[in-house]
Design a protein around this nucleic acid. Structure first.
Lengths: 123, 123
DNA sequence: CAGGATCCAGTGGGATACTG
DNA sequence: CAGTATCCCACTGGATCCTG
């Protein structure tokens, strides 16, 4: 495998667009929204309820940015009352694997982190 | 596989510690620092140079937090001038796989994102 | 139901200078 | 070399109210 940081065009280069891409997909809410869409289309309100702590503002803002970058597809059914669904594009689906792995890592090891933190803070 | 968002104790729960863990390991600089350490111990100044755009302040702050959570080990050789090295703990190493996957995804697809963005912004 | 608009407090992080 | 300390501002994101 190529060593990190050697060639240009990688995430370690401040000017490379891959840095921007990384920051988008690793943003706090994108990290939770994308994995939430793997099982099929989800509505705005469902995301609002299932992702605890997200505000309507941040949800919309993140979804819009994900849509803008071709990761998420927004489908407006043009009904009254409104019915809007979001689902992953193929590109978004390829990303979801990496994000789910990260989410799962956090779920598996958070107690380990907490224990290390307590040790560090006291001693 | 378990459906996301159903059981408690997952990243989708605002109160669960795994959310905190996720935010730590997905922080902007941790995402770049951890993969940079996979090949062995690295010195402060090397990280400062190889990770473009990071300031000494953020580098120290992120490394300290990673150390506090048991992901990174700091070794001070107690010499003059100072010689400090950082390397991954086994826990940090297990995380690095997920982060490297994410970094690589960004490197592979950033042009795809940029193209989608241009389309979205004009049309 | 989905989300736009506005206001505003809190803070993340850069710049700079200093230290063992 | 590897930090710490201080200042300070731009921007993030919550709260609130409004609309089709």
């Amino acid at each position: 495998m190529r060593k990190p940081g050697r060639a240009s065009g990688n995430v370690f280069s401040a000017t490379c667009p891959s840095r921007t891409a990384l920051e988008l997909v690793s943003s706090k809410w994108a990290l939770l929204i994308v994995p939430m869409l793997v099982d099929g289309p989800v509505r705005n309100n469902d995301l609002l309820r299932r992702i605890e702590g997200v505000s309507q503002k941040m949800l919309t803002q993140t979804l819009r940015e994900l849509e803008r970058n071709g990761l998420v597809v927004r489908t407006d059914h043009l009904t009254v009352p409104p019915h809007v669904e979001y689902h992953l594009s193929p590109l978004g689906r390829s990303l979801s694997e990496a994000l789910i792995a990260l989410d799962r890592w956090a779920e598996q090891h958070h107690d380990h982190l907490r224990y290390a933190r307590e040790k560090f803070d006291q001693g």
